[in-house]
């Protein structure tokens, strides 16, 4: 019989992941690329399903940040709290703060959420899992664009105006999402196994918000100043706000280092995620 030389793609499954790192990264990138249609489809599905069942629709995206901003504006104006000058109208400061914070939190939660909601198909259909992460990013961008639009209205309303620094806004925005997703993605495998993890994250982030210049600026001295300046979320929040309103960027180098680390970290997290999914599927629904 003639030996058939076939060009069919071959997949080998075994315990030992002897695949070398280069091949792993190449496979992963190929899957990220090939999954963009699936990712878009997931994102479209979730977004349209989300709004088809609601009258207020996208209003929900900014109702929460607006509500918490209003609380702080009230606290400030009524004299309950006295917040130091922020270099811009306080409502703009606190509103941009809460909006950016909500974007960052969404970014951190997104990988776990996307993967969790796909649990039932993960154990039944083999598809590029990277699509889940990518669809999370798409959904994040969509939701954030709505919030950013609202922020623009605020800038006009409070006469802050549009500055040339806005040109950097998309870049900084992407970087914030990227770092947030990288952190969230790193925690996803363990977070899928133990629900404690996502509870801890939610609780931790609520506390960390008070150590980040979201509602109030960094004080001039004291322990709080040291903590806030070290806090890696500080440069993410402040830089995005500063390019939005046209202020000088305080933590430029810290921000750039974070972005660089974020890219590396995202890569590592993606590889870990890829290796972890079979283990998670096995433990959760085998």
């Amino acid at each position: 019989m003639k030996v058939q030389i076939s060009d069919l793609p071959e997949k080998v499954y075994s315990r030992q992941n002897r695949t070398n790192l280069g091949k792993l990264v190449a496979d992963m990138l190929a899957d990220v690329w090939s999954s963009h249609f699936l990712a878009r489809q997931f994102a479209k599905r979730d977004i349209s399903a989300q709004y088809r069942q609601s009258y207020l629709g996208i209003l929900w995206l900014f109702l929460t940040p607006i509500a918490s901003a209003l609380v702080w504006i009230f606290l400030n104006n009524s004299g309950t709290l006295s917040i130091a000058d922020t270099g811009m109208p306080y409502p703009v400061y606190v509103f941009s703060g809460t909006l950016i914070w909500s974007i960052l939190i969404d970014a951190i939660n997104s990988p776990t959420q996307s993967t969790n909601s796909a649990r039932d198909i993960l154990s039944k259909v083999n598809f590029p899992k990277e699509a889940l992460i990518l669809s999370g990013v798409y959904k994040l961008i969509f939701n954030s664009l709505v919030k950013i639009f609202l922020l623009g209205i605020f800038l006009l309303f409070f006469d802050v105006g549009f500055h040339l620094s806005l040109l950097y806004f998309p870049l900084v925005f992407i970087s914030v999402i990227l770092v947030g997703t990288a952190v969230g993605l790193f925690l996803t495998p363990i977070g899928l196994l133990y629900t404690d993890v996502s509870r801890l994250i939610t609780m931790g982030l609520t506390l960390i918000m008070y150590l980040t210049p979201v509602m109030y600026g960094i004080p001039d001295s004291g322990l709080m100043k040291i903590i806030m300046e070290l806090n890696p979320l500080t440069p993410l929040v402040t830089t995005l706000r500063e390019v939005a309103v046209g202020q000088d960027v305080q933590f430029l180098s810290y921000f750039l280092v974070l972005t660089g680390l974020g890219i590396v970290f995202l890569f590592i997290s993606l590889i870990i995620y890829r290796l972890s999914i079979p283990v998670i599927v096995e433990r959760l629904s085998a």
């Binding site: 076939s6 997949k11 499954y13 083999n126 283990v279």
Partner: peptide, 14 residues
């Protein structure tokens, strides 16, 4: 390919 075997190998072509 949803879960990995603990021992042995599976080769799937196509």
């Amino acid at each position: 390919g949803l879960i990995n075997p603990d021992a042995g190998t599976v080769t799937m072509r196509g």
